[in-house]
Write a protein that binds this DNA or RNA. Sequence first.
DNA 1: ACCCGGCGAGACAGACCGGTATCATCGCGG
DNA 2: CCGCGATGATACCGGTCTGTCTCGCCGGGT
Lengths: 198, 198
Amino acid sequence: MATTDSTIRPRGTARDRILETAYELFSRHGTRAVGVDRIIAECGIAKMTLYRNFPSKDDLILAFLERRDERWTRAWLQAEAERRGATPAERLLAIFDTFEGWFAEEDFEGCSFINVMLEVVEHDHPVRQASVEHLASIRAYVRGLAEAAGVGDAEGFAHQWHILMKGCIVAAAEGDRRAASRAREMGALLLAHHGVAG
Amino acid sequence: MATTDSTIRPRGTARDRILETAYELFSRHGTRAVGVDRIIAECGIAKMTLYRNFPSKDDLILAFLERRDERWTRAWLQAEAERRGATPAERLLAIFDTFEGWFAEEDFEGCSFINVMLEVVEHDHPVRQASVEHLASIRAYVRGLAEAAGVGDAEGFAHQWHILMKGCIVAAAEGDRRAASRAREMGALLLAHHGVAG
DNA sequence: ACCCGGCGAGACAGACCGGTATCATCGCGG
DNA sequence: CCGCGATGATACCGGTCTGTCTCGCCGGGT
Protein backbone atom coordinates (compact mmCIF):
# COMPACT_ATOMS: atom_id res chain seq x y z
CA MET A 1 0.00 0.00 0.00
CA ALA A 2 1.06 3.57 -0.46
CA THR A 3 1.01 4.69 3.17
CA THR A 4 0.64 2.65 6.31
CA ASP A 5 -1.58 3.73 9.20
CA SER A 6 1.31 3.24 11.59
CA THR A 7 2.70 6.69 10.83
CA ILE A 8 2.90 9.37 13.48
CA ARG A 9 -0.01 11.23 11.91
CA PRO A 10 -2.96 10.68 14.30
CA ARG A 11 -5.60 10.02 11.63
CA GLY A 12 -5.53 10.16 7.89
CA THR A 13 -3.61 12.48 5.65
CA ALA A 14 -2.95 16.12 6.37
CA ARG A 15 -5.34 17.08 3.61
CA ASP A 16 -8.11 15.05 5.16
CA ARG A 17 -7.56 16.50 8.63
CA ILE A 18 -7.74 20.01 7.20
CA LEU A 19 -10.91 19.24 5.26
CA GLU A 20 -12.45 17.57 8.28
CA THR A 21 -11.83 20.60 10.51
CA ALA A 22 -13.00 22.96 7.77
CA TYR A 23 -16.17 20.90 7.42
CA GLU A 24 -17.00 21.27 11.10
CA LEU A 25 -16.26 24.99 11.23
CA PHE A 26 -17.73 26.00 7.87
CA SER A 27 -20.96 24.08 8.37
CA ARG A 28 -21.47 25.42 11.88
CA HIS A 29 -20.30 29.01 11.57
CA GLY A 30 -20.26 29.79 7.86
CA THR A 31 -17.39 30.15 5.42
CA ARG A 32 -16.97 33.89 5.85
CA ALA A 33 -16.96 33.85 9.65
CA VAL A 34 -14.21 31.23 9.81
CA GLY A 35 -10.71 32.24 8.77
CA VAL A 36 -7.90 29.94 7.71
CA ASP A 37 -6.00 30.85 10.89
CA ARG A 38 -8.75 29.31 12.98
CA ILE A 39 -8.82 26.18 10.86
CA ILE A 40 -5.07 25.59 11.16
CA ALA A 41 -5.17 26.36 14.88
CA GLU A 42 -7.94 23.84 15.52
CA CYS A 43 -6.40 20.95 13.62
CA GLY A 44 -2.80 21.70 14.60
CA ILE A 45 -1.46 22.00 11.10
CA ALA A 46 0.90 24.45 9.44
CA LYS A 47 -0.52 27.14 7.24
CA MET A 48 1.75 26.17 4.39
CA THR A 49 0.46 22.61 4.57
CA LEU A 50 -3.04 23.93 4.03
CA TYR A 51 -2.00 26.05 1.09
CA ARG A 52 -0.02 23.16 -0.40
CA ASN A 53 -3.17 21.04 -0.42
CA PHE A 54 -5.63 23.79 -1.32
CA PRO A 55 -4.38 26.63 -3.55
CA SER A 56 -6.78 29.11 -1.97
CA LYS A 57 -9.50 29.33 0.64
CA ASP A 58 -12.08 29.20 -2.13
CA ASP A 59 -10.72 25.83 -3.21
CA LEU A 60 -11.08 24.63 0.38
CA ILE A 61 -14.67 25.88 0.39
CA LEU A 62 -15.36 24.01 -2.84
CA ALA A 63 -13.98 20.82 -1.28
CA PHE A 64 -16.11 21.46 1.81
CA LEU A 65 -19.25 21.77 -0.34
CA GLU A 66 -18.36 18.53 -2.08
CA ARG A 67 -18.00 16.74 1.26
CA ARG A 68 -21.24 18.30 2.45
CA ASP A 69 -22.94 16.79 -0.58
CA GLU A 70 -21.47 13.37 0.17
CA ARG A 71 -22.37 13.40 3.84
CA TRP A 72 -25.42 15.57 4.30
CA THR A 73 -27.28 15.02 1.04
CA ARG A 74 -26.41 11.44 0.21
CA ALA A 75 -25.22 9.65 3.34
CA TRP A 76 -27.72 11.36 5.60
CA LEU A 77 -30.81 12.82 3.92
CA GLN A 78 -31.24 10.29 1.13
CA ALA A 79 -30.31 7.37 3.35
CA GLU A 80 -32.78 8.45 6.02
CA ALA A 81 -35.55 8.95 3.46
CA GLU A 82 -34.99 5.46 2.10
CA ARG A 83 -34.77 3.93 5.54
CA ARG A 84 -37.95 5.58 6.79
CA GLY A 85 -40.12 5.13 3.69
CA ALA A 86 -40.90 2.10 1.57
CA THR A 87 -42.65 3.74 -1.37
CA PRO A 88 -41.45 6.81 -3.28
CA ALA A 89 -44.28 8.91 -1.80
CA GLU A 90 -43.41 7.80 1.71
CA ARG A 91 -39.79 8.65 1.09
CA LEU A 92 -40.69 12.11 -0.12
CA LEU A 93 -42.67 12.76 3.05
CA ALA A 94 -39.93 11.14 5.15
CA ILE A 95 -37.66 14.00 4.12
CA PHE A 96 -39.63 16.27 6.42
CA ASP A 97 -39.73 13.70 9.21
CA THR A 98 -35.95 13.61 8.97
CA PHE A 99 -35.83 17.39 9.00
CA GLU A 100 -37.85 17.42 12.22
CA GLY A 101 -35.06 15.74 14.14
CA TRP A 102 -32.47 17.91 12.42
CA PHE A 103 -34.25 21.14 13.37
CA ALA A 104 -34.46 19.99 16.99
CA GLU A 105 -30.70 19.61 17.32
CA GLU A 106 -29.05 21.92 19.79
CA ASP A 107 -26.59 23.31 17.26
CA PHE A 108 -28.80 23.29 14.18
CA GLU A 109 -26.56 24.67 11.48
CA GLY A 110 -28.92 25.13 8.54
CA CYS A 111 -28.32 24.24 4.91
CA SER A 112 -24.75 25.11 3.94
CA PHE A 113 -25.67 25.33 0.26
CA ILE A 114 -28.30 27.99 0.94
CA ASN A 115 -26.08 29.82 3.39
CA VAL A 116 -23.08 29.92 1.06
CA MET A 117 -25.19 30.79 -1.98
CA LEU A 118 -26.71 33.77 -0.20
CA GLU A 119 -23.49 35.01 1.36
CA VAL A 120 -21.55 35.00 -1.91
CA VAL A 121 -23.05 37.91 -3.76
CA GLU A 122 -21.07 37.74 -7.02
CA HIS A 123 -23.35 35.92 -9.41
CA ASP A 124 -20.65 34.12 -11.39
CA HIS A 125 -18.40 33.21 -8.47
CA PRO A 126 -17.40 29.53 -8.64
CA VAL A 127 -18.31 28.99 -4.98
CA ARG A 128 -21.80 30.33 -5.60
CA GLN A 129 -22.20 28.26 -8.74
CA ALA A 130 -21.10 25.15 -6.87
CA SER A 131 -23.71 25.79 -4.17
CA VAL A 132 -26.41 26.16 -6.80
CA GLU A 133 -25.30 22.90 -8.42
CA HIS A 134 -25.38 21.03 -5.12
CA LEU A 135 -28.89 22.35 -4.52
CA ALA A 136 -29.82 21.12 -7.99
CA SER A 137 -28.53 17.66 -7.14
CA ILE A 138 -30.87 17.56 -4.13
CA ARG A 139 -33.69 18.52 -6.45
CA ALA A 140 -32.65 15.80 -8.88
CA TYR A 141 -33.08 13.24 -6.12
CA VAL A 142 -36.56 14.54 -5.38
CA ARG A 143 -37.34 14.42 -9.07
CA GLY A 144 -36.32 10.77 -9.19
CA LEU A 145 -38.69 9.95 -6.34
CA ALA A 146 -41.45 11.92 -8.06
CA GLU A 147 -41.00 9.99 -11.27
CA ALA A 148 -41.06 6.71 -9.37
CA ALA A 149 -44.25 7.86 -7.64
CA GLY A 150 -45.87 8.40 -11.01
CA VAL A 151 -46.08 12.18 -10.90
CA GLY A 152 -46.77 13.67 -14.32
CA ASP A 153 -44.61 16.78 -14.30
CA ALA A 154 -41.79 15.44 -12.17
CA GLU A 155 -39.54 18.41 -12.87
CA GLY A 156 -42.12 20.97 -11.80
CA PHE A 157 -43.07 18.83 -8.82
CA ALA A 158 -39.44 18.65 -7.72
CA HIS A 159 -39.11 22.42 -7.89
CA GLN A 160 -42.21 22.78 -5.74
CA TRP A 161 -41.05 20.17 -3.26
CA HIS A 162 -37.70 21.86 -3.04
CA ILE A 163 -39.43 25.18 -2.30
CA LEU A 164 -41.07 23.49 0.68
CA MET A 165 -37.72 22.10 1.81
CA LYS A 166 -35.86 25.39 1.51
CA GLY A 167 -38.72 27.37 3.01
CA CYS A 168 -38.93 25.23 6.12
CA ILE A 169 -35.14 25.23 6.55
CA VAL A 170 -35.17 29.03 6.57
CA ALA A 171 -38.14 29.00 8.95
CA ALA A 172 -36.23 26.66 11.24
CA ALA A 173 -33.23 29.00 11.17
CA GLU A 174 -35.67 31.75 12.12
CA GLY A 175 -36.66 29.76 15.18
CA ASP A 176 -39.82 27.88 14.15
CA ARG A 177 -39.45 24.46 15.68
CA ARG A 178 -42.54 23.10 13.94
CA ALA A 179 -41.37 24.13 10.47
CA ALA A 180 -40.87 20.53 9.33
CA SER A 181 -44.38 19.32 10.11
CA ARG A 182 -45.87 22.46 8.57
CA ALA A 183 -44.02 21.76 5.33
CA ARG A 184 -44.87 18.07 5.47
CA GLU A 185 -48.57 18.91 5.59
CA MET A 186 -48.23 21.03 2.45
CA GLY A 187 -46.24 18.24 0.85
CA ALA A 188 -49.09 15.84 1.47
CA LEU A 189 -51.47 18.29 -0.20
CA LEU A 190 -49.15 18.54 -3.19
CA LEU A 191 -48.90 14.75 -3.49
CA ALA A 192 -52.68 14.41 -3.33
CA HIS A 193 -53.04 17.11 -5.95
CA HIS A 194 -50.88 15.02 -8.26
CA GLY A 195 -52.98 11.96 -7.62
CA VAL A 196 -50.44 10.18 -5.44
CA ALA A 197 -51.90 8.31 -2.52
CA GLY A 198 -50.52 9.61 0.77
CA MET B 1 -40.39 74.89 8.60
CA ALA B 2 -37.26 73.71 10.29
CA THR B 3 -35.02 73.58 7.26
CA THR B 4 -35.54 75.01 3.81
CA ASP B 5 -34.75 73.06 0.66
CA SER B 6 -32.72 75.99 -0.65
CA THR B 7 -29.66 74.89 1.30
CA ILE B 8 -26.57 73.68 -0.51
CA ARG B 9 -27.29 70.11 0.56
CA PRO B 10 -28.71 68.44 -2.58
CA ARG B 11 -31.53 66.56 -0.86
CA GLY B 12 -32.61 66.02 2.71
CA THR B 13 -30.52 65.82 5.83
CA ALA B 14 -27.11 64.21 6.02
CA ARG B 15 -28.55 61.35 8.04
CA ASP B 16 -31.14 60.66 5.39
CA ARG B 17 -28.62 60.72 2.55
CA ILE B 18 -26.44 58.24 4.43
CA LEU B 19 -29.36 55.94 5.13
CA GLU B 20 -30.53 56.21 1.53
CA THR B 21 -27.13 55.21 0.17
CA ALA B 22 -26.80 52.44 2.75
CA TYR B 23 -30.24 51.17 1.75
CA GLU B 24 -29.23 50.86 -1.89
CA LEU B 25 -25.90 49.21 -1.16
CA PHE B 26 -26.99 46.93 1.68
CA SER B 27 -30.08 45.66 -0.10
CA ARG B 28 -28.20 44.99 -3.35
CA HIS B 29 -24.87 43.67 -2.10
CA GLY B 30 -25.40 42.66 1.51
CA THR B 31 -24.35 44.29 4.75
CA ARG B 32 -21.06 42.43 5.09
CA ALA B 33 -19.90 43.03 1.53
CA VAL B 34 -20.39 46.80 1.81
CA GLY B 35 -18.02 48.75 4.05
CA VAL B 36 -18.60 52.16 5.54
CA ASP B 37 -15.86 53.58 3.32
CA ARG B 38 -17.89 52.71 0.24
CA ILE B 39 -21.03 54.23 1.70
CA ILE B 40 -19.38 57.55 2.48
CA ALA B 41 -17.64 57.58 -0.89
CA GLU B 42 -20.89 57.04 -2.78
CA CYS B 43 -22.91 59.70 -0.99
CA GLY B 44 -20.07 62.22 -0.65
CA ILE B 45 -20.22 62.56 3.10
CA ALA B 46 -17.57 62.64 5.78
CA LYS B 47 -16.96 59.57 7.86
CA MET B 48 -17.40 61.48 11.09
CA THR B 49 -20.80 62.67 9.93
CA LEU B 50 -21.86 59.07 9.54
CA TYR B 51 -20.58 58.15 12.98
CA ARG B 52 -22.26 61.21 14.52
CA ASN B 53 -25.61 60.01 13.18
CA PHE B 54 -25.06 56.29 13.70
CA PRO B 55 -22.89 55.20 16.64
CA SER B 56 -21.74 52.08 14.80
CA LYS B 57 -22.21 50.22 11.54
CA ASP B 58 -24.60 47.87 13.31
CA ASP B 59 -26.83 50.81 14.18
CA LEU B 60 -26.82 51.80 10.53
CA ILE B 61 -27.79 48.24 9.60
CA LEU B 62 -30.65 48.35 12.10
CA ALA B 63 -31.87 51.60 10.54
CA PHE B 64 -31.57 50.02 7.10
CA LEU B 65 -33.70 47.06 8.19
CA GLU B 66 -36.29 49.46 9.56
CA ARG B 67 -36.42 51.33 6.26
CA ARG B 68 -36.59 48.03 4.39
CA ASP B 69 -39.67 47.18 6.47
CA GLU B 70 -41.28 50.53 5.66
CA ARG B 71 -40.59 50.37 1.95
CA TRP B 72 -40.44 46.76 0.92
CA THR B 73 -42.89 45.13 3.32
CA ARG B 74 -45.47 47.86 3.79
CA ALA B 75 -45.23 50.37 0.94
CA TRP B 76 -44.57 47.73 -1.69
CA LEU B 77 -45.63 44.18 -0.83
CA GLN B 78 -48.71 44.94 1.27
CA ALA B 79 -49.78 47.80 -1.00
CA GLU B 80 -49.45 45.63 -4.10
CA ALA B 81 -51.39 42.78 -2.48
CA GLU B 82 -54.22 45.13 -1.58
CA ARG B 83 -54.22 46.77 -4.99
CA ARG B 84 -54.28 43.48 -6.89
CA GLY B 85 -56.76 41.59 -4.71
CA ALA B 86 -60.23 42.49 -3.46
CA THR B 87 -60.83 39.66 -0.99
CA PRO B 88 -58.38 38.42 1.66
CA ALA B 89 -57.83 35.18 -0.25
CA GLU B 90 -57.12 37.08 -3.45
CA ARG B 91 -54.68 39.28 -1.62
CA LEU B 92 -52.83 36.28 -0.23
CA LEU B 93 -52.42 34.84 -3.71
CA ALA B 94 -51.55 38.29 -5.07
CA ILE B 95 -48.38 38.15 -2.95
CA PHE B 96 -46.99 35.58 -5.36
CA ASP B 97 -48.17 37.52 -8.41
CA THR B 98 -46.26 40.48 -7.01
CA PHE B 99 -43.24 38.28 -6.42
CA GLU B 100 -43.33 37.20 -10.06
CA GLY B 101 -42.50 40.69 -11.27
CA TRP B 102 -39.94 41.11 -8.49
CA PHE B 103 -38.09 37.92 -9.41
CA ALA B 104 -37.97 39.02 -13.04
CA GLU B 105 -36.12 42.24 -12.25
CA GLU B 106 -32.65 42.52 -13.70
CA ASP B 107 -31.00 43.18 -10.33
CA PHE B 108 -33.18 40.97 -8.13
CA GLU B 109 -31.73 41.45 -4.68
CA GLY B 110 -33.60 38.87 -2.59
CA CYS B 111 -35.09 39.32 0.86
CA SER B 112 -32.77 41.41 3.01
CA PHE B 113 -34.25 39.98 6.20
CA ILE B 114 -33.41 36.41 5.18
CA ASN B 115 -30.00 37.43 3.86
CA VAL B 116 -29.03 39.33 6.99
CA MET B 117 -30.44 36.68 9.33
CA LEU B 118 -28.39 33.97 7.65
CA GLU B 119 -25.20 36.00 7.39
CA VAL B 120 -25.17 37.00 11.06
CA VAL B 121 -24.27 33.78 12.78
CA GLU B 122 -24.36 34.91 16.43
CA HIS B 123 -27.78 33.86 17.64
CA ASP B 124 -28.35 36.74 20.08
CA HIS B 125 -26.91 39.50 17.90
CA PRO B 126 -29.28 42.51 17.78
CA VAL B 127 -29.04 42.69 13.99
CA ARG B 128 -30.09 39.05 13.70
CA GLN B 129 -32.91 39.53 16.18
CA ALA B 130 -34.14 42.56 14.27
CA SER B 131 -34.21 40.56 11.04
CA VAL B 132 -36.22 37.82 12.73
CA GLU B 133 -38.67 40.40 14.06
CA HIS B 134 -39.12 42.00 10.65
CA LEU B 135 -39.82 38.56 9.21
CA ALA B 136 -42.37 38.05 11.98
CA SER B 137 -44.10 41.28 11.02
CA ILE B 138 -44.50 39.98 7.46
CA ARG B 139 -46.02 36.83 8.91
CA ALA B 140 -48.33 38.92 11.07
CA TYR B 141 -49.69 40.60 7.95
CA VAL B 142 -50.34 37.19 6.38
CA ARG B 143 -52.02 36.09 9.58
CA GLY B 144 -54.35 39.09 9.43
CA LEU B 145 -55.37 38.18 5.89
CA ALA B 146 -55.89 34.56 6.94
CA GLU B 147 -58.16 35.59 9.79
CA ALA B 148 -60.14 37.84 7.47
CA ALA B 149 -60.45 34.93 5.04
CA GLY B 150 -61.95 32.81 7.78
CA VAL B 151 -59.10 30.37 8.21
CA GLY B 152 -59.38 28.40 11.43
CA ASP B 153 -55.78 28.17 12.59
CA ALA B 154 -54.62 31.52 11.25
CA GLU B 155 -51.29 31.34 13.07
CA GLY B 156 -50.38 27.96 11.68
CA PHE B 157 -51.64 28.98 8.25
CA ALA B 158 -49.46 32.10 8.33
CA HIS B 159 -46.39 30.03 9.18
CA GLN B 160 -47.12 27.73 6.26
CA TRP B 161 -47.76 30.60 3.88
CA HIS B 162 -44.54 32.22 4.99
CA ILE B 163 -42.66 28.98 4.28
CA LEU B 164 -43.96 29.20 0.72
CA MET B 165 -42.85 32.82 0.49
CA LYS B 166 -39.38 32.23 1.86
CA GLY B 167 -38.93 29.04 -0.13
CA CYS B 168 -39.74 30.65 -3.44
CA ILE B 169 -37.53 33.67 -2.67
CA VAL B 170 -34.58 31.34 -2.09
CA ALA B 171 -35.50 29.42 -5.25
CA ALA B 172 -35.56 32.71 -7.17
CA ALA B 173 -32.12 33.58 -5.80
CA GLU B 174 -31.02 30.17 -7.01
CA GLY B 175 -32.15 31.11 -10.50
CA ASP B 176 -35.64 29.62 -10.81
CA ARG B 177 -37.62 32.23 -12.69
CA ARG B 178 -40.90 30.38 -12.24
CA ALA B 179 -40.58 30.12 -8.47
CA ALA B 180 -43.45 32.52 -7.81
CA SER B 181 -46.06 30.63 -9.82
CA ARG B 182 -44.91 27.32 -8.34
CA ALA B 183 -45.45 28.68 -4.84
CA ARG B 184 -48.73 30.28 -5.83
CA GLU B 185 -50.06 26.92 -6.95
CA MET B 186 -49.23 25.40 -3.57
CA GLY B 187 -50.81 28.40 -1.89
CA ALA B 188 -54.04 27.73 -3.76
CA LEU B 189 -53.94 24.13 -2.53
CA LEU B 190 -53.42 25.31 1.03
CA LEU B 191 -56.33 27.75 0.79
CA ALA B 192 -58.60 25.04 -0.60
CA HIS B 193 -57.52 22.72 2.17
CA HIS B 194 -58.68 25.32 4.68
CA GLY B 195 -62.01 25.63 2.92
CA VAL B 196 -61.35 29.03 1.44
CA ALA B 197 -62.69 29.51 -2.07
CA GLY B 198 -59.95 30.31 -4.56
C1' DA C 1 25.23 7.95 6.07
C1' DC C 2 22.89 11.23 3.79
C1' DC C 3 19.81 13.93 1.65
C1' DC C 4 15.23 15.32 0.52
C1' DG C 5 10.56 16.19 0.93
C1' DG C 6 6.79 16.96 3.93
C1' DC C 7 5.69 19.16 8.00
C1' DG C 8 5.07 22.50 12.29
C1' DA C 9 5.83 27.00 13.87
C1' DG C 10 5.79 31.59 13.33
C1' DA C 11 7.06 35.97 11.19
C1' DC C 12 5.72 38.77 7.59
C1' DA C 13 3.33 41.34 3.65
C1' DG C 14 -0.43 43.74 1.75
C1' DA C 15 -5.06 44.69 1.80
C1' DC C 16 -9.22 45.86 4.03
C1' DC C 17 -12.14 46.68 7.95
C1' DG C 18 -14.54 49.65 11.69
C1' DG C 19 -13.75 53.51 14.22
C1' DT C 20 -11.18 57.93 15.92
C1' DA C 21 -8.72 62.29 15.62
C1' DT C 22 -7.49 66.63 13.37
C1' DC C 23 -8.15 70.68 10.84
C1' DA C 24 -10.05 73.90 7.53
C1' DT C 25 -14.39 75.51 5.83
C1' DC C 26 -19.06 77.13 5.49
C1' DG C 27 -23.82 78.48 6.89
C1' DC C 28 -26.45 80.55 10.08
C1' DG C 29 -27.90 82.95 14.35
C1' DG C 30 -26.97 86.48 17.73
C1' DC D 1 -19.54 91.10 12.14
C1' DC D 2 -18.38 87.34 14.86
C1' DG D 3 -18.53 82.90 16.65
C1' DC D 4 -20.22 78.31 16.82
C1' DG D 5 -21.74 74.06 15.43
C1' DA D 6 -22.06 70.95 11.58
C1' DT D 7 -19.58 69.32 7.84
C1' DG D 8 -15.87 67.55 4.37
C1' DA D 9 -11.38 65.79 3.72
C1' DT D 10 -7.89 63.09 5.23
C1' DA D 11 -4.68 60.87 8.02
C1' DC D 12 -4.39 57.53 11.31
C1' DC D 13 -5.02 53.36 14.63
C1' DG D 14 -5.59 48.67 15.86
C1' DG D 15 -7.38 44.57 14.36
C1' DT D 16 -8.28 40.82 11.00
C1' DC D 17 -8.07 38.70 6.72
C1' DT D 18 -5.69 35.82 2.88
C1' DG D 19 -1.58 34.35 1.31
C1' DT D 20 3.82 34.05 1.30
C1' DC D 21 8.29 33.25 3.22
C1' DT D 22 11.79 31.25 6.25
C1' DC D 23 13.67 28.13 9.39
C1' DG D 24 14.29 23.95 11.78
C1' DC D 25 12.79 19.25 12.50
C1' DC D 26 12.04 14.55 11.43
C1' DG D 27 11.47 10.26 8.97
C1' DG D 28 12.38 7.23 5.08
C1' DG D 29 14.47 5.66 0.85
C1' DT D 30 18.83 4.83 -1.48
